[in-house]
């Protein structure tokens, strides 16, 4: 099979089999990409995953771009990425067009009132699980509290907080960076 087509189809398969994004995708990537296709080693996959988590955008998309690029350059990266999102686009477009036809029905409205409650809990759970990784000391707790309160009470774009927090992170760690730099210099 043409390698470009293979990249697209394999990542489409990964896209279909991933429910709930990010972390759910890892075991499926291990099976398809590492064990079956040998496009990356286990370690490489972990590296891509770690970088995918700390670069902008959707983790699944970032990982697909990495592996596709490694296999067949920039075009490979783009095709693998389009593969991951292709099934999502089709499935969601079908569901969204159905829901917009049924949303006036009483039982659909009642169902979504129940579902919204569940979504609240899912968001709370996501916050709790990210908590341990993000809040490692007093400064990170303060950044969290400041951004939380500011975005509850002020009406500013989230972009402002992201840019400011990134800059603040570098500023706070500047001493460490300099110290480590000196050590390496010697």
């Amino acid at each position: 099979m043409n390698i470009y087509l293979d990249l697209f189809l394999t990542f489409s398969k990964v896209g279909v089999m991933t429910f709930g994004g990010g972390y759910a995708m890892l075991p499926i990537l291990q099976r398809e990409v590492v064990n079956k296709k040998h496009w990356a080693s286990e370690e490489e996959l972990m590296d891509y995953y770690a970088i995918g988590q700390c670069t902008p955008g959707v983790i699944a998309v970032n990982t697909a771009t990495f592996i596709g690029r490694k296999e067949r350059g920039n075009l490979g990266g783009i095709l693998a990425t389009l593969g991951v999102v292709f099934p999502s686009i089709i499935i969601i477009l079908v569901i969204a067009s159905l829901i917009s036809n049924f949303s006036h029905l009483a039982w659909v409205q009642n169902a979504f009132a129940g579902i919204r409650v569940c979504v609240c809990i899912l968001i709370i759970n996501a916050v709790v699980s990210l908590w341990k990784k993000a809040l490692v000391d007093v400064f990170t707790v303060l950044i969290f509290a400041a951004v939380f309160l500011a975005s509850v009470f002020l009406n500013l774009s989230p972009i402002i907080y992201v840019v400011a927090a990134g800059a603040l992170g570098i500023l706070l760690q500047l001493k460490k960076i300099k110290a480590a730099g000196k050590k390496e210099g010697k």
């Binding site: 990784k133 992201v162 927090a165 706070l172 760690q173 500047l174 730099g181």
Partner: peptide, 29 residues
């Protein structure tokens, strides 16, 4: 190290944004 340091600040900020969005959805719900 600069990338590391930026993410030291970015992770709690991202979490704060998600928590605030969660709160507003809780209020509506």
């Amino acid at each position: 190290r600069f990338v590391d340091a930026a993410f030291y600040g970015l992770r709690p900020a991202s979490l704060g944004l998600i928590a605030a969005a969660g709160l507003s959805i809780i209020l509506i719900c």
